[in-house]
Nucleic acid binder design. Structure first.
Lengths: 321, 321
DNA sequence: ATTTCTTGATAAGTTTTAACTATCACAGCC
DNA sequence: GGCTGTGATAGTTAAAACTTATCAAGAAAT
């Protein structure tokens, strides 16, 4: 009873046509239907609304006062529908929607500024909504549908996802300028034995990487001074609280001038993290996402080739359709 | 080809429901349909728009980026439809539309100000669009559908119309204050013999009334000074160009203070015009129009009873369904 | 690892809706 | 009085929308 006979869009279009022609037959001709079909739909509309819209007579048709009143509203509906269809037409051609991309906070600010401009050049009209979150949160949001894409550290639990490895980023060793090892571009691993190493909070992927490396190296993790961001971590090293492993892209982006810090590598032992692009296996835009991932690999190779190394080939993990 | 599969309102409502539930089964429950029916309509919608709106998986459903983009537009359509239906619901109850009423210029300004306030009291929300035109034009516009109602002088060619007689209005004799007959409230008809009588242009109904009367009275119509309105006619009398017959309601409204004019009646011979309300016989609101006519009769009786006389009983002329 | 539950998709059949053709009844016109 | 043009009606057909029953696959529990 609450929703007796909702009008259909078609009925409104028919109404509009009759209102413009004030003649059933010619309106029916415009609509490419027969006149009885038009009559039936109009009277169905009137019954549904319980309002007489048109006054029929043997000599033509007029709008009733109510019909005059409701016609603009009917046209509003038709116009809204046209707008929807126009947007849908655009969306069905290019990839004009806004895609939600998640990135870890230790990567996004240092990668995306180098990549986004050319990515937009390659995909004009592309709109990315970028969200920074710890990688576990990203994974969860990706699974739940809150994100469409995420850049994540590898390896990861790829069930239900497609993961495209993109590039491998070294972690470089950073020490204060007044540290005994300062000045050397390459340091031997054994020289780190006993060194104080600062790192980020445990929720960051870097934490576990550095922790494991320190165990092998015999260096000491300073758990009571964990940084909340790479920038604070750097400040802590500058202040002499210890040393740190910082991602190469961070160093590339933020440490153009030496400042009070010295950067070096470990001889024969490169600490790295690998990044991949992930999306849900069933996502309708998955082909576009794969294209995006190869574009990112390409752009990273062009612009950041010195700082990182690309994925050997496109590897995909996890289920796929 | 140009219009392959336009979405239906129903499909948009289904889409909205699925977008809210992110679950076909519970959305189907809300919509009181089966889940397969919902699946079918959603995929019909996607095929029609050629856009994937939803990403189905065995564990729940998400919006695609395109779906997120189009959902607000779909809701616009639904909202526009709701607005239409709300207006229709109002229109189907009271008479809330704007009715187009035509009145002759020699009556409207002198009748409606006395009638409209109480008419609005009796029909709260009533909206009348009043249009002044010569009566032949009114009749033509009423027949063509440009007007819904018209107040017209009787009798008239009522084919296809319903005409409700309302009241009879005397025409009173107006002379300059310095005229020999001035000062008498009743004048004998024979005293008008040879008098110069001014009147309106031929298109006004009054013209033929006065012309015929003058023929009987032996008075002389001044054809070279025809007034374009009752006000100019009055001014012409004031200026001494002649005498005139003016409608009682005009006199009642505009001549509160005597000015330079004298008003009198003809003994045993009352020149009158009769007014009725007319509408098309097939008009869906015809019962309301009849009600309006009796309300007007009633109000005129209350407020203007001294100046005019009511229709004896409701007479209707012309075809009716 | 297997079972169970939940998900959306599919198949087959039924009901409802929208359309067609043919025709009617009436108004207006010559 | 016939002719033309109007919307309404009847009867039929085709398409669309819905139903129930079932399936296949991922998730979660055992």
């Amino acid at each position: 009873m609450r929703d007796p006979n909702p009008p259909t869009i078609r009925q409104l279009q028919y109404f509009d046509a009759v209102a413009r022609h004030l003649n059933y037959r010619s309106a029916a001709e415009e609509l490419a239907i027969s006149q009885p079909a038009l009559t039936a739909q109009i009277s169905a509309l009137e019954n549904g609304l319980k309002v007489a819209l048109l006054e029929r007579s043997r000599s033509g048709t007029h709008l009733t006062p109510e019909g005059r009143e409701l016609l603009p509203h009917a046209r509003e509906v038709i116009a809204a529908m046209r707008t929807l269809r126009e947007h849908a037409a655009v969306a069905s051609e290019g990839h004009q929607a806004t895609y939600r991309l998640g990135v870890p906070p230790t990567l996004g600010p240092y990668l995306l500024p180098h990549v986004m401009p050319e990515l937009h050049q390659r995909h004009s009209g592309l709109k990315l909504y970028v969200r920074e979150q710890p990688h576990q949160i990203l994974l969860q949001e990706l699974r739940s549908g809150a994100l469409d894409l995420a850049i994540l550290p590898l390896p990861l639990d790829a069930r239900g996802l497609v993961v495209q490895a993109m590039f491998t980023e070294p972690l470089r060793y950073v020490i204060p300028a007044d540290h005994p090892l300062a000045g050397r571009s390459v340091v031997r691993p054994r020289q780190l034995r006993g060194e104080k190493v600062l790192t980020l909070e445990a929720q960051h992927h870097i934490h576990s990487l550095v922790k494991e490396a320190c165990a092998n190296l015999g260096a000491v993790i300073q758990r009571d001074y964990e940084g909340t961001s790479l920038d604070t971590l750097r400040q802590m090293v500058v202040m002499g609280l210890g040393t740190a492993f910082l991602p190469a892209l961070y160093i590339h982006s933020e440490m153009h001038r030496p400042e009070a810090l010295h950067v070096c590598d470990l001889q024969g032992m490169t600490l790295t993290r690998e990044h991949g692009l992930a999306w849900r296996a069933g996502a309708p835009s998955r082909h576009f996402y794969r294209r995006l991932s190869s574009d990112i690999i390409d752009i990273v190779g062009l612009r950041l080739g010195k700082a990182i190394s690309l994925a050997g080939k496109y590897k995909s993990r996890g289920a796929r359709r």
